[in-house]
Design a protein around this nucleic acid. Structure first.
Lengths: 222, 222, 222, 222
DNA sequence: GATGAATGAGATTTCATTCAT
DNA sequence: CATGAATGAAATCTCATTCAT
């Protein structure tokens, strides 16, 4: 990547490509092993030779399919991103709004459990995404707008709903979202990045939801 | 670093070395520019040639003083770590325990503001530390035990105090600490890593402290 | 090599590798030129850049195939060692034991001529082996046991035979072997290492065999 | 050294210098440690930095005194050479010719024991000399003529004497000398170079003298 | 004299990428 | 499609030597 910008066209191309073309056996092995290695040692510290060896494929094959080490990374990251937020939004709608009796606390717990499960199943990719988003401004510049486009609209409505019900504090949307994002993001990053092979457990999620909803003050013990 | 373990002796050696020997002008320039470049482009994507050029020094000089690109990184990271937690502990003691009338909320705010200020002043190093701790297990294995040795004892006492005063919820230490660490860590990482050149502002800190103390429920609006 | 031990596995690996995989044209040129240069200027004073240039190959190619300058050296030395002693043993058996009328003197002459011819044909490698075995303890530790495993058993039998015939003096095996090894080794090393481009000639060999068999005393003039 | 020739003037200069100038404490430590390190790891694999560290001296000091790493080597090797052959010759004269009843065997034993002792006491330098003479043609070209100038004349006389006495075989001088040199050289090199920290023992010397004088044939058992 | 920081030339090594088969 | 040999540019590292203090 070394400096070159990653154009939006490329972004779009790879996104769409992921859906149309079927992956061959070799391609799958390449992707699988690239994910494993990138997660373990980071993109920059993983050579294409290593990936080829792990995938039992010649180096040439990798470049035949992905053209560039960078595009290989994108073929891994982008489909994940593309999946994560939309299905998250979808889950929010599905799981929450149907039963109108759900409390904010219940909503949060379901959301977190659902996303934690998703991340756990894709924990290597998650690692890669997080690690690389920190390094590559181009990636950041792709993902953030995508996030802001997808998430706030729907989550905003949820917040409105709970505000209307008088369950959550009456502060501007953006501040509430920021707080939520900080707590939830902090949870995912600390658990999945810092802890090796973290498996989501209920107590952990309950605790972090408790903080988000009631804080640590004794007020929460009601 | 590639695989070899970083022994505690090395850790100690580098730490102590930083204190005893005087740094020459050139050494200072090397460190300064290395920090800047590592923060900007990441350790792996910064060549020693670049650092040498930026520091207006020959590459040989870098290796003369730091032996290895890896040890250069450590000479940057370890002193920071060594400073951060102890002075944090010190601040906790100084700022909190003297005035007995301070509430938990006030305590958290002061702590966060103080640490946010420290990080802001060393934001490049902070970036480097966070980015690289993710990649280097050896570093993680050095820093974590150090953290656990320094922080919980003193913070545990604070929590006891506030529990005794009935200000915070009666849960086991470790769970409370985990929740706190998640929220505070999430705050620092999201602000300083994801936002470019974030400057700590009071509203932000107030909001995150509000979450930690009262949560988002209306209970908090009391 | 610098300190790390060279495990027997490595030894075996390199040996076997040489047999299974086919060498490309370029690999052959690399080995040829490396031998020539190492013999001429010594391992430490020959740069991989020089080898690459002489072999009309890029430096990358060398490292692609041999990984390390050190392993390049081993790929040269070990096959030679692997060849030298076993075929020597084989020659001993073949040339000596079939004709029962051969005297000890004739045996020694044939052995020396045969080995001198072999060394002459591989004199560059021999130079490299001798020069580097002095420097690299790991190499010494590989070669010596190998030598002791292969040579004494068979040569011991020959000595027994000649002792039984009353041709050679009745001293313990190990002392006789040591004496022989000293004289023969001294011969090969002095001739091939110190003299430039030494070509084995009969007078030389006859003289050294004379010393080994009869010594310099007039007793020998019988 | 890398290619440049080592002029005879230099040779002479250093030889003479060794006698006139007194060595300071630091110079002694430099030489001592250089010998140790060169013997251990070879000249090419020993850096001046290492020597400086071992000698507890700054690198600058080494270059102040010896100008060049190469000249440092010469200051070690040449005095040894200068000492070895002449005192050997001297010993030959002193120990042998005074008592006219000494046999060739006794002469050889005394000579070998004396030289073995000398080498043992200077075994590190001996290692350095042997190792480097192999590599450096310039050194070889200095030492060989020196050897041929000093040794054959006197040893030739000894051989004449023993020939006259009918003790040794009647062959041309040069062939006898070559044989002797091969056996004796083989002895010293194999013992002091290949065996770690070899200490001369009588059996060893007796055996090698036996070979040189009587050979391995039963003729010797008389 | 002694020091040790600094240098720069060169050595080894890595690696994404190309291309003939 | 797949291979893997080959490349060359760049990265890390080494080291004899110089020089200001």
């Amino acid at each position: 990547m070394k400096g070159e910008t990653m154009s939006n066209q490329l972004f779009d191309m790879i996104l769409s490509r992921g859906e149309t073309k079927k992956r061959t056996e070799k391609q799958k092995k390449i992707i699988e092993n690239a994910i494993k290695l990138f997660a373990q040692k980071g993109y920059a510290n993983t050579s294409t030779a290593e990936i080829a060896k792990a995938a039992e494929v010649s180096e040439g094959t990798i470049f035949k399919h992905y053209g560039t080490k960078d595009q290989l990374l994108l073929s891994i990251i982008l489909p994940f991103i593309k999946d994560f937020f939309p299905t998250m939004v979808h889950e929010v709608i599905k799981e929450t709004f149907l039963p109108k009796t759900v409390t904010f606390e219940q909503f949060l717990k379901r959301l977190l459990k659902n996303r934690a499960e998703f991340i756990f199943e894709n924990r290597d990719i998650f690692l890669v995404v997080i690690k690389e988003i920190i390094y590559k401004d181009e990636l950041k510049n792709e993902v953030f707008p995508y996030f802001f486009e997808k998430v706030p609209p729907i989550l905003g409505k949820v917040i409105d709903e709970f505000k209307a019900r008088g369950e959550i504090v009456d502060l501007p949307h953006d501040r509430i979202l920021k707080m939520l994002a900080t707590v939830i993001g902090g949870f995912f990053v600390s658990r999945f990045i810092l802890l090796d092979n973290y498996r989501p457990n209920n107590e952990d999620i309950d605790d972090i939801v408790r903080v988000a909803v009631y804080g640590l003050s004794t007020c929460s013990s009601v």
